[in-house]
Design a protein around this nucleic acid. Structure first.
Lengths: 177, 177
DNA sequence: ACAGCCATGTAACTTGTTACATGATTTT
DNA sequence: AAAATCATGTAACAAGTTACATGGCTGT
């Protein structure tokens, strides 16, 4: 949440609740609504680190709001981060770990797990397709839906690989641990 | 780390340091070595929750080791988890978020970022291919390498989508924020 | 009057990450 | 004798998650 908040604040200053709304609007297609508390937590940390600066802005007839803006330091940190290449990912996908562990633990039949999970991914693909048909998606939403879709397709392909491995070599593979 | 440790302990009881070695052996191809401290932290938490049970096992001539085994509760929890389908993933991949934010922030040219990241992914693919040529990989290693490879290929495809979107519609897209 | 949204925050907890401390055993 | 590995842990910190508390404003 650090960098998302910095990036949103680089567009214009905003208060906590507003950030939540902007974030949910932009990323809601592929991310569940973010907990507001986390926004405030993160803003506190960012302010502690001098990356953002908050100030009370009195409202007429409403309690004043705390509006945050990027500091110079924050702007630099954001830009440095944006320009860095990201490390290639390590696999943290829960299901991948689960399936491998199921195979290791030997308790549950991996093929059954695979079939169930495939249904789940099909469902996700359908939902993404539905979202994609919406004509007033903006660029970022389209790209995020594309990313999610490609990712799930990759997982589906992996399920096929695994199924093949688990069924074909079941009999051949008697060479212990 | 909770479930990986439970799964490894379901094979046979082990002490902390041993778990680190087993884990690194099995997942080392796609995961950086895990910090031993985390193993011990996690074991403490698991013992607190009655999922594992540790006992001192005196060694002849060495200081005794604390060997952990699954409790019944731990075995049940592991099996339940293995049988649950996992939620379809939300996108947490750093670079995806970064590229979208770069586009939003408007500070850095997304196309440049894409090119740099593509090199990074190519490098990762080459490294995975090298790993894959090793003939004595076991089943789980092969599958993990396959998963990592499919994932990066999906990311590369996504980069192409993004590049297209950012270059094609650059001129057409003059309809404000 | 009441529900629901606007708005800000705190507290407790979990997980992961790093660094540090300690000491024994094994290998060179 | 020194270095590497075996072995166990603690402390501090960062980040994410949830739940809770508080109160004002808005629409029905």
């Amino acid at each position: 949440m650090r960098y998302p908040i910095l990036a949103l604040l680089s567009e214009k200053p905003a208060h906590g609740y507003e950030l939540k709304q902007i974030f949910d609007n932009r990323f809601g297609a592929v991310w569940p609504p973010i907990n507001v508390g986390q926004i405030y937590n993160t803003l506190s940390a960012l302010e502690r680190d001098d990356l953002v600066q908050g100030k009370e802005v009195p409202q007429r007839g409403s309690p004043s709001r705390r509006v945050y803006e990027l500091t110079e330091k924050g702007r630099v940190e954001l830009e440095e981060w944006l320009e860095e290449t990201s490390d290639s990912p390590t696999l943290k996908e829960e299901f991948i770990i689960k399936l491998i562990l199921a195979y290791i633990a030997g308790a549950t039949d991996p093929v059954i797990i695979i079939d169930l999970q495939r249904q789940e991914y099909f469902k996700a693909i359908r939902e993404l397709n539905d979202l994609a048909t919406n004509k007033d998606n903006d660029t970022t939403t389209r790209l995020l839906i594309g990313a999610a879709s490609l990712y799930i397709q990759a997982l589906l392909k992996w399920l096929d690989q695994c199924e093949e491995e688990f069924t074909d070599h079941q009999s051949t593979d008697s060479t212990g641990t």
